[in-house]
Design a protein around this nucleic acid. Structure first.
Lengths: 162, 162
DNA sequence: GGAATATAATTGACACGTCAATCATTTCCG
DNA sequence: CGGAAATGATTGACGTGTCAATTATATTCC
């Protein structure tokens, strides 16, 4: 209680910045996602999955590897693959050599959708993110992200981590 | 094609920064939300609603005003109030003077939950956001947010806005 | 070999968000 | 007045995310 670091709470100004920061990044994410969806019919989740499969050997990946690649929980991926399967963007196959495994396989339709999406998506990132900042600010964004990420990883992000 | 501004697409480095930035802010948001939930049983949505009601005259607000205050769509608020009502955090009443209106009223239980939540929530914001950055970086975060927000508002965030 | 355990993936229940109806009341105006 | 349009709010359908089981196969080790 003695050793409590400077202000237990954020100052008014810090709080204002926090709210602004989190709301703005949220709006940015939503705007990019909306553009992607309207221009290609893909959600950002779809895009991540298709990107990973496109870059994978033979357009196929074991479910758990795919989850690790894009940083998703297993059950989230499972639900999402179910929806993508229903839409014909991917196909599920049994994993040869390990019968409990499953592989997600890129379909022609999935590959086509991904290719239709990529150019407009990159353009949206440039227009809404890069073009809104000076080069110095883009650099600052990178440093900010790195600092926050390091801090999160060390200081424990989760709820149960302390 | 001649007049195309500097790189139609983000550079490799810009793209790396974009991904890092968006993933990190997402992880930060998730971490703060998880802390809030585990420490108080409230979601960030609950918190926003309770904050607005707490600050309102008599702990009550007309539904549409509440939506405007916290920047939500009406239907989103309606769904959320339904869930909060079921949990006893707020109560719905008819709006005197305009029978199509509805008011959300803070219950004792809602007020108590909010008060239990606020200190740990502010602490989490300090620990996970403010403490992860130098004072200069906090300032940079504010400027970044302002720049991105301005750009989003002018350059059209939505999908249909061009 | 065969039970205990670990691993891979799916499932179900539920919270949350968006969009497009829908319903009720009020307001506008001829 | 009375019907058309505007306004306030809710609802339903569906995509998405999390958590806690559950199912199925592999591995381990006695």
């Amino acid at each position: 209680m003695l050793t409590q670091r400077r202000g237990q709470f954020p100052t008014r100004e810090e709080l204002r910045i926090w709210r602004n920061f989190i709301e703005t990044t949220d709006a940015l994410r939503a705007a990019i996602a909306a553009r992607l969806l309207s221009e290609s019919g893909l959600s950002t989740g779809d895009y991540s999955v298709l990107l990973a499969l496109t870059e994978a050997e033979n357009g196929r990946l074991r479910s758990s590897e795919l989850a690790a690649t894009i940083g998703w929980e297993r059950s989230r991926l499972s639900h999402h693959l179910g929806r993508m399967d229903k839409r014909g963007l991917i196909r599920r196959e049994n994993c040869t050599g390990d019968n409990r495994g499953a592989e997600a396989v890129l379909t022609g339709e999935g590959a086509a959708a991904f290719h239709r999406a990529t150019v407009p998506h990159l353009r949206a990132i440039r227009e809404l993110f890069v073009d809104g900042l000076t080069p110095a600010q883009v650099g600052a964004a990178g440093e900010l992200a790195a600092a926050l990420r390091d801090h999160l990883e060390s200081a424990g992000g989760g709820a149960s981590s302390r």
